[in-house]
Amino acid sequence: MMTVIDPVLIVLTFLWIGFVCAISFMEAGLKFRAPGVTIPVGLSIGRVVFGALNKVEWVLAAAIVLNYVLFHHVYSWNMAWIAGAILILKIQTLWMLPALSQRAKNISEGVSLPPSSLHRYYLLLEVSKVAILFVYGVHLFH
Rank of each mutant, 00 (worst) to 15 (best):
L89Q: 13
W58K: 11
F25T: 00
E27W: 10
L140P: 00
R103H: 02
H139F: 13
M1W: 08
S44I: 00
P35K: 15
I39C: 12
K55F: 09
V59Q: 06
Q102C: 06
V20T: 03
L125K: 07
V135W: 13
W58L: 07
N106S: 14
L113P: 01
W58R: 08
G51L: 14
V11W: 13
G29R: 04
E57S: 12
V8M: 15
P115Y: 04
N106H: 15
L124I: 02
L113G: 11
I64S: 07
M2E: 08
F25Y: 04
V69K: 15
G84F: 00
F14R: 00
G51W: 10
S76Q: 08
L100E: 04
L123Q: 06
L94W: 07
S101E: 10
H142S: 09
A52R: 12
F14H: 04
Y121E: 02
A62E: 01
E27D: 07
M1Y: 11
K55Y: 12
W16A: 15
H139L: 11
F134S: 11
I107P: 04
T13D: 13
I10Y: 14
E57T: 02
L9C: 03
L97H: 09
L89H: 12
G84E: 04
R103Y: 02
L70C: 06
M1P: 04
E109L: 13
G46I: 00
I10T: 02
I10V: 12
S128R: 08
I64V: 11
S116H: 05
A22I: 03
V41S: 08
K105W: 11
K129I: 00
V59E: 03
L140F: 05
H119A: 03
F32R: 03
Y122R: 11
R33G: 06
F141E: 00
S76W: 10
Y136K: 03
V74K: 09
L30M: 06
